[in-house]
Design a binder for these strands. Structure first.
Lengths: 196, 196
DNA sequence: TTTAGACTGGGACAAATGTCCTTTTTAGCT
DNA sequence: AGCTAAAAAGGACATTTGTCCCAGTCTAAA
């Protein structure tokens, strides 16, 4: 699912002094904005484009947590926990982001009630989302998880690469291909002019 | 892993007016404090005892998100999102909890800077924890996940029932038993006086 | 056009996990 | 101690998923 947070984006558009706190930055496709285990001095909010958020384990395998779209916030957990980043954020399209320094982020949290509320809500949504997703992933088959994913965002399969979809579902590409094949065959049995 | 939040518990112990906002309540083993899809009017902080936090899917299968111990907070996500509960919280031992009404929770968030900060931190920790756990669960074998779980909390296997451990790992009891057996046999091959 | 290298899909088999059901163990009762 | 019902463990088999590897396809340089 591609996560968004429109109310946060609107806040930045409207807030007084916004341009002072939130610096616009262009990101090119493939660029890593935050890297796992590194220190990051900024929080980011997406104005345009899509990024993937993933963790890499000891063996070098990636697991994608979420896809981030318009308005999504990242880097904030590290600012509040005062830790290195626990994930990598990488652009999968060209992007425009607003970046806000750690100091300013903390300042806004303390002094801007609206901002504080928006961050709270963003956290609460992330927690609920993660809980439901993990639960669903564990309790259902790959096929069911894939269906759910497709229905969550229109045109998902066209936007996101197969490799990334597999990493999001926590499965091998082979398994993903198998499901896709299986499904196309089933579709064929209901269709007259199945090709090949 | 049994999650705790000692600084939050300490805050309640020390805060002025604490007794006005946080009402102590005794919970018996097995009691459901919050139920999935129901409206809950309170946030809770654990003073003593352990609870499990789980989601139940359409098919009636449970997936345990976390085990909650001293200081853990729950019900807060629903207060902030203003939604029904997305999980069930059930005591797996006798418990003592502090409960705080939705209204008071919101009041404290807005007017008590210390409380606000503690909730922020609690959220940030939960998000990080969930990300790491989901990632590990997906990328590793049952055996590896079980080992990780045991090492996280001393005496885990004695405190938590097998059924709950299986639900936490998102596997069937059969699979859990299989791993346990396998491991005991391996241990045996290094031991002289293996019984039976 | 040809060809080396990279990328993609899929076959064959192995390993992990789930389902179903039987056996064993436990605990309570008489 | 002996009996029975309930709980826990485990055997056998089916299904799912992963691993390894090969064949087909595409791309770009010569």
């Amino acid at each position: 699912m591609i996560r968004t947070n429109i109310e946060l984006l609107e806040y930045i558009g409207l807030a007084a002094n916004s341009a002072h706190f939130f610096l616009k930055e262009e990101i090119e496709k493939g660029q890593k904005i935050i890297e796992q285990n590194r220190n990051s001095a900024f929080g980011y909010i997406i104005k345009k484009g899509i990024a993937k958020c993933f963790l890499t384990d000891e063996g070098g395998n990636d697991f994608i947590q979420e896809f981030f779209g318009e308005g999504e916030l990242f880097g904030e957990v590290e600012i509040i926990n005062n830790t290195n980043s626990f994930c990598t954020i990488q652009a999968i399209s060209e992007m425009t982001v607003y970046k806000v320094s750690k100091t300013n982020f903390q300042y806004l949290l303390e002094n801007d009630k609206k901002f504080n509320t928006l961050i709270m809500r963003s956290f609460a949504k992330k927690i609920q989302y993660k809980a439901v997703r993990h639960s669903h992933n564990q309790l259902h088959s790959i096929k069911s998880n894939l269906n759910r994913l497709e229905q969550s965002t229109l045109g998902f399969m066209e936007i996101i690469s197969k490799t990334d979809i597999a990493s999001y579902l926590g499965i091998s590409i082979r398994s993903l291909n198998r499901i896709l094949k299986e499904r196309s065959l089933q579709a064929g049995s209901f269709t007259k002019n199945k090709v090949k």
